[in-house]
Design a protein around this nucleic acid. Structure first.
Length: 177
DNA sequence: TAAGTGATCTCT
DNA sequence: GAGATCACTTAA
């Protein structure tokens, strides 16, 4: 898909298969505006959560108040509290009524999904908002040219309960830098 | 390696 | 309403 460097990434980018979106997000910018200052961080690690069939996906038991945003249109943030202290940031992908999202696990400047949101001052205020500059949190295409050789794929973290084949599914994407 | 932490979900 | 669970981090 064509992306213009320095332009916000729009909904059409996210309204595609979750695994494709996850892989292509590597190397792009996650942008955050705080008190008038804009920060840009290269995305280095993401995980895909793909639909109701995926037992590791929050939506696998159906729609609830928490996960309903995943059933909505692509390109909106899904932010939730994990282990009572960490906000985790996801972007909704795929068509409406297909619950899927990509979890942001790491940036060039931070490691770990909980520290990422702490660093960018992300909390439930961003939940269900569109990923556009108006919301203060959005994505931009970078000038980096990512090759297949630059990407590692591994199973996802912290989802041992999901069982086979979801435990071992290589839905985690890491940029080797 | 284990504890901290609290929203969410499932079962009464 | 109560109890279990949980896409993590930190300090030891």
């Amino acid at each position: 898909m064509k992306r213009k460097v320095g332009k916000p990434i729009g909904q059409e980018f996210f309204n595609r298969p979750t695994l494709v979106v996850a892989e292509e997000l590597l190397g792009q910018y996650l942008c955050r505006q705080i008190e008038g200052e804009t920060e840009r961080h290269i995305i280095t690690e993401v995980e895909a959560y793909d639909g109701q069939e995926d037992k590791a996906c929050h939506a696998h038991k159906g729609k609830t108040q928490r996960n309903q945003v995943m059933f909505g249109p692509a390109g909106q943030w899904y932010v939730y509290l994990c282990y009572g202290m960490h906000w985790l940031l996801n972007i909704v992908t795929g068509p409406e009524e297909y619950p899927a999202a990509v979890l942001f696990r790491g940036l060039q400047t931070t490691t770990g999904p909980g520290r990422l949101t702490k660093c960018l001052q992300i909390n439930s205020d961003q939940n269900e908002k569109p990923a556009l500059p108006d919301s203060g949190l959005w994505l931009e295409a970078s000038a980096l040219n990512i090759c297949k050789e630059d990407i590692s794929r591994t199973p996802r973290i912290g989802i041992d309960y999901a069982g086979s084949p979801w435990v071992e599914a290589p839905y985690r994407f890491i940029l080797k830098i």
